[in-house]
Amino acid sequence: MKIEGDYLLKASPATLWEKLLHTETLAKITPGVKHLEETAPGQFIATSEIKIGPVQGSFKGDLSIKDKKEPEGFTLVLSQKSKIGNATAEVKLNIIPESAEETKVKYEGKAKLSGVLARTGQRVIGGVVKTLAKQFFKALEAELAKGTSDVEVSPTEASPPPSPEADTPPA
């Protein structure tokens, strides 16, 4: 499955670079993330709780950052396991200056799902990823506005956009 999108933020590439690579900030602003622990430079163990339409689960696994090119971008590699199936993703983030005040973060990559997650979540997952990404950037925006990283971000329940074919609302 393809993942792509972008978001415009009021910050310089250097500030964004700093925030995006700051473990605690990252843990706070990433929707669903319960815990993020750096085990080696650029290597993390992440635990998260995600609810996608009818399926919900606790995920645990590796998160790593590679191909760092300050302040232009990096690649996020995720490998998460759960009882409802596993997810792997490789997403490239590009930090692109748009103007003196604004910077665009563009992301693109691929995700692979398995198990129940793939079987019953596939149809809504594209919308879910978009929602999660939006929440992530909103939280990042709030973080930038504060200047310091003490924003409370609760674990997120992502509601997928209503699907025209769904005849029951997502649980």
Partner: peptide, 14 residues
């Protein structure tokens, strides 16, 4: 089945 072999019509939702 998607190209990875996941049955994406695995419930009566799909």
């Amino acid at each position: 089945y998607d190209e990875d072999g996941q049955l994406i019509t695995g419930s009566y939702m799909d």
